[in-house]
């Protein structure tokens, strides 16, 4: 999975596969980080208190 494991080869297959994985994980990670940070900011500004969705 990582370049330091002995089966790792810097070839096209690894780059495409791991590139796709990192791409997906990055989007998921950034998306969730954004949601949580915005929620913290919103909550600190007093949004959503006692509201029903």
């Amino acid at each position: 999975m990582f370049p330091f494991s002995f089966e790792w080869i810097w070839d096209l297959s690894h780059m495409i596969f791991m590139g796709g994985l990192v791409y997906a994980l990055t989007i998921i990670g950034i998306g969730m980080t954004y949601c949580i940070l915005k929620t913290v900011v919103d909550t600190m500004h007093g949004k959503g208190g006692g509201q029903q969705h």
């Binding site: 997906a24 989007i27 998921i28 998306g31 954004y34 949601c35 949580i36 915005k38 929620t39 913290v40 919103d42 909550t43 007093g46 949004k47 959503g48 208190g49 006692g50 509201q51 029903q52 969705h53």
Partner: peptide
Amino acid sequence: LENRQINKVPFFHNLAHNMHEVMAIFAAT
């Protein structure tokens, strides 16, 4: 988070709202 009681907590209410806002990105992924 949209459960009636959980949603009363502002943080969870806001989190549910914000997650809905960016759901298209998650759906596409």
